[in-house]
Design a protein around this nucleic acid. Sequence first.
DNA 1: CCTACCGATCGGTAGG
DNA 2: CCTACCGATCGGTAGG
Lengths: 184, 184
Amino acid sequence: MRLFAERGYHATSMRDIAAELDLQGGSLYAHTASKEDLLWQAVSRAADEFVRRAAEATAAEPDPIPRLHRLVLSHVDYMTAARDNAIVFHHEWRFLSPERRERVAGRRREYEAYFRQAIEDGARTGAFRVSDPKVATLAVLSLVNWLYQWYRPEGVLSPAEIGGQLNGLVDGALGVAPQTERRS
Amino acid sequence: MRLFAERGYHATSMRDIAAELDLQGGSLYAHTASKEDLLWQAVSRAADEFVRRAAEATAAEPDPIPRLHRLVLSHVDYMTAARDNAIVFHHEWRFLSPERRERVAGRRREYEAYFRQAIEDGARTGAFRVSDPKVATLAVLSLVNWLYQWYRPEGVLSPAEIGGQLNGLVDGALGVAPQTERRS
DNA sequence: CCTACCGATCGGTAGG
DNA sequence: CCTACCGATCGGTAGG
């Protein structure tokens, strides 16, 4: 997963992976049927994990504002804890077979729907003041998705601090009145 | 550029490119010295164009709020007008040779500095109310950079509408008071 | 898990 | 710009 994240799927050969494990190239095929299966492991695990956490956050927080906060925090959490998987998920999923690619696209749509639902719910109750909930959703997803590009474990901000900062910016973007802002 | 954007650099062969142009594989080498030179053309053009437009926006707008608005709009403009180049710029630049990769990284830092400067200037004058200008800069860059993932020319929103919406969200995130909000 | 190998394809070149 | 080719490397397999 680290090699796929660093070099990309097509620029990583099975012999590169084998060397990292002190094996000969052909020996990998005792553990996996194909190179694409390795990619599928990383991508499908990340997709499942993202969706699982979003479902959990949604079930735990009925109120739109803390629900969205928790969605953001759990994204930051997984992204920082399983960075290689998350990078491969974002960058390399398009190299899967068409069927698997379609399954990932479905999971991705599921995931985004949790964010969209929270934002639309909040817009309806007046918790969020937002002109276009669809664009607002894409904006929030931009914030969390782009994280894989700039997060460095050795950076000064902890994952929790990053999550808190992003949620502050999300609140502002969605017009949450500062005095009624809740902490989650 | 289209093939690199759609399939990725390493999954596109010189013979794929040649076929697209109704040429034989070897004939491409009458026009380019190497495959990497083709990648470099797309990436360096995008990097130059992004930086050029950011410099222009910065020179034209001394005031932080309209300056940042214009930075966002010009990013959206180039991204939507030269989508393939922008996608290749974001996705494939890491496959350049180390020297060229470093040059791109430098251009990228230059580009981000224009955004950071506008946000720090605005934070100093009180135009923006933001707790951490560095994170705020990364957030704004997230909004515009992630655009390449979801923008579709056939979508309902025009580039200008997307730019306007993003600027509204940016204003909110940076704590621009709605009543004093300027249009640029 | 290794050795030895398969056919296919890669980026690139020579010579015209 | 084409034909024909180079050596290298690819994902994957056979047989042990």
